[in-house]
Design a binder for these strands. Structure first.
Lengths: 204, 204, 204, 204
DNA sequence: AATGAATGAGAGTTCATTCAT
DNA sequence: AATGAATGAACTCTCATTCAT
């Protein structure tokens, strides 16, 4: 069999397993899910899993890598020609907030939970996603600011605050807060406004 | 033995176990920690644990309850006589940010991780901590706003955004971001400024 | 304290424990019952039990000894002057059947169950109860037969069959057979008739 | 692998485990036997047991089911053409008495002991064995009696007495009575005679 | 490549028994 | 004599992983 097709088959099988794992992880959590659960959901034998993944944790990592790919794809950054700051902000906020909404909140929860506790996963996330994303945003904004003659000294921290804001709202959503859940769609606007104008009279 | 002293002994033993569990949980995480680990750390027999806690999860809940107690104690609210909004905000932000710093970041991570995945723990957190805290803040701000003739329509969401910001920064800290870690102490000021004035030139 | 009173106190305490154990054994069975259960029921401390009994099994033995005493007391044999065979049989059958009815069927079940499995208990039962009782019955019948000029060659086996019949009916009762349960009171008559006349037309 | 062979392998493994369990249960009793004991005797890993049985009790149930199968097979009823009552009785008595003798008395003891104490096992025994067997015997005798113009009013109770007699003799055997043990082979005859003719001079 | 039965280390938990008070 | 907290051996059961087929 040509190597190319071979590779595609392997990828297909991996994805089959990851799809199945995503379903059962989302439903039961990482630790409570057994490899038998995954195999059953994927309609393959338990042993087959180990032809494609070293161990259970590697499956979670695999799911994570796919999430990463989708995040990075979406994050492909906000056109250099967005001159309006408000529009820029809105775009910057819109993607992650809506991505998560569309995506599986339940699975996100599982991955984050394990990430907080698993050094390897955390490192990968930081090095491969968080840090590059922050750096990208920083560069993009820096450039724009420079073109307008500004030089924001606290940009690094600002960016972390903004992205932290998103993180925090996701957590509150997960925690079951209904206000956040109900007004999720307003958030891009609301946050952009808050960030631009500060706490105006409607807010505090 | 007088009941009073009896109660104190029981409390002391419970705390001894919780202290030990906090240490090993922080070091290894909840799932990887065995009851044997806890017993060894507490220098008691494994069986003794079960004289004080129903099961392993109950120990985590116990740790959580102690955290709760300390959080609630600190959260005792920001004096009604803080008329300056900036000072008010600063106070509001300062406590949780500094509390966590003092506290065990590692343990916090374990508890949050499990909370994301454990319905019971999540419910307790939401009902006993998050919701009341948000409600308290809301009432306190509402009152102040009213005394000044304002009526902030989006207050509920604002409060969630602000507290989410704190959550998010904690997560970034946990994830190992060095910018956040190094400038942790500046955050109360920085955030208060951001919230009051929006993204000023030093920020973006 | 005089030795006599001392002894009475000890007996009283033992009985208190045995009473409690009988209650919880009857309710839950021997193995599922914990020494804590017994202590709680007896309203004493767990450790106290061990001042009076060597171990959990010794408690069951204690219960058994009390049963034995009551059985032996009742079995005190059927007056030598019962000349009518039917009356003799009736008396012979009546006591054990009715004793069990009055007594705790549930507790009886527990003791028998454990007896089947516990060598020591079984030996004690056989040596101290079953064998003597059978011997007593044998002697008593032998004497009567002799006085009437008969010499029943199979008496030993007959006696075992009759007492086995009682045992078996008890088992069927325990097993939940409703026919046996409902007609329990008729049994002495019914059995006496069967034994004297064989399977008459009303029976087969 | 064909399903048929697959099924046979599973059955074989189950039987291997049941055989092993029967040996160790008979030797040590149900509760004192550990799953490790069973595994060692079966020469398999402890975990393998749980691929075939849900838990330890299910193994006892499995043993019980096999006993049931053998009992039911033997009990296949005493031909309708047995016109002689004595022969009928003899047949009726012979099977269970001899089956037990051939079979493992020790194992029987274990199962009965647990049955007395285990609701589930008791229910199964009563519903699946005792009740049907009694019903079968009743129907069979009823028919024969009817054909001879008789209508035995106490048949139900009679049958219980007879089968109880067998039960009781088994118990006495288990209890270690030597008279019963030594004359076990005579019992079918002896009991048939007793039942037909009542207590004749050789018996009392 | 796929299978799934077999594995066995190790988990959480129980509880009869001890012993310092 | 009574207590009951402490003990720790021993239990049943789980499950990620292996490997012969």
């Amino acid at each position: 069999m040509p190597d190319r097709i071979q590779q595609q088959l392997i990828e297909a099988r991996k994805n089959q397993i990851l799809d199945a794992a995503a379903v059962v992880f989302a439903a039961k959590g990482f630790h409570p899910t057994t490899t038998k659960d995954i195999a059953r959901q994927a309609e393959i034998a338990e042993g087959t899993i180990y032809n494609y993944f070293d161990n259970k944790t590697a499956i979670l990592l695999g799911i994570f890598e796919r999430m990463k790919a989708s995040v990075v794809a979406q994050a492909a950054p906000p056109a250099a020609d967005v001159h309006d700051v408000r529009e820029f902000l809105h775009t910057f906020l819109y993607h992650p907030l809506m991505a998560l909404k569309a995506d599986n909140f339940a699975l996100f929860r599982i991955v984050v939970s394990e990430m907080m506790v698993n050094e390897e996963l955390r490192r990968r996330y930081y090095e491969q996603i968080l840090a590059p994303t922050l750096a990208l945003a920083e560069a993009s904004i820096q450039e724009q600011a420079a073109s307008q003659g500004r030089s924001p000294a606290n940009l690094k921290l600002t960016i972390r605050v903004i992205s932290g804001m998103i993180w925090g709202l996701m957590l509150e959503h997960i925690m079951g807060d209904s206000v956040v859940a109900e007004r999720w769609d307003e958030l891009p606007d609301f946050l952009a406004d808050l960030l631009l104008n500060g706490l105006t009279d409607d807010k505090i």
